[in-house]
């Protein structure tokens, strides 16, 4: 008998299917998002009706949005067991590619949500007539993407991402407490920063930074974060790669 070997799927098919299945798995999140927007719309509507100022969102809130982007991967990958003989890894697809495809699919929907959010905010600003429409900077999208990638990398690369998250938070809090408790006395890092060479290097860097144009000042850190995000995802993907030997 003649056996014809079967082919693996092409990348485009895998991408399309991941975008589709991630959408299906995020239906609950999408509903919650819509509900939040609806509530906000009602509240703002009432405020506008009574003629009160209705600027409900200002630039400080981007921190909250960033946090959402950071934990969003937990929603995208909720259904997959990553470090066990998982269904995902039985599929005839290069595992690193499959992982990238799914990260990409999650990003697509994150961006859709972002655009909806921006449009919503824009519409409300126009309606309230009080605030001038904020121009949403291009690099907000980059920042969100970077945080999303960072979150994905942490989630996919670590066997116990939640423990790492909590652990890191714990360490930070401990450090804060320590600093408060022992406020006096020079600390190791203070001594480190007092080194003259370092001090002058820092000063030179700051002055160079301030001479940069404004857009660059916000773009560069975002791009740097994006690179870090990519690298974490890449590192995570290598943990799941097909040819990774024990």
């Amino acid at each position: 008998m003649n056996v014809t070997l079967h082919a693996a799927p092409i990348l485009r098919t895998v991408l399309r299917e991941q975008v589709r299945i991630v959408a299906r798995s995020l239906i609950r999140e999408a509903r919650a998002f819509a509900a939040v927007l609806a509530i906000v719309a009602v509240v703002i509507g009432v405020e506008i009706f009574y003629g009160r100022a209705a600027l409900w969102f200002d630039s400080d809130d981007w921190a909250a949005i960033g946090l959402v982007a950071l934990v969003f991967p937990f929603s995208v990958w909720r259904r997959d067991r990553l470090f066990m003989p998982a269904f995902l890894w039985t599929l005839p697809v290069n595992r690193a590619q499959l992982l990238y495809a799914k990260v990409f699919a999650g990003w697509v929907w994150l961006m859709v949500a972002f655009i909806v959010f921006v449009a919503f905010q824009f519409a409300l600003s126009l309606l309230s007539g009080l605030a001038s429409p904020q121009i949403i900077s291009f690099d907000a999208g980059i920042g969100i993407t970077a945080l999303y990638l960072l979150g994905s990398g942490i989630l996919l690369g670590l066997r116990h991402p939640l423990r790492w998250f909590l652990g890191a938070a714990g360490v930070l809090i401990m450090l804060g407490l320590l600093e408060r408790g022992l406020a006096s006395g020079p600390w190791a890092f203070e001594i480190f920063f007092e080194t003259p060479q370092l001090k002058s290097a820092v000063e030179r860097f700051t002055s160079a930074w301030q001479r940069l144009p404004r857009f660059a000042q916000s773009l560069i850190p975002n791009l740097l974060m994006l690179v870090v995000g990519f690298l974490t995802v890449r590192t995570a993907a290598s943990r799941h790669a097909d040819n990774r030997r024990r």
Binding site: L5, H6, A8, P85, P92, N94, R95, D242, N243, R245
Partner: peptide, 16 residues
Amino acid sequence: TVARGPEVRAQIGYIP
């Protein structure tokens, strides 16, 4: 099975 995992898995129907 390691070097050519995706191709190998394309040949397989698996009931766990």
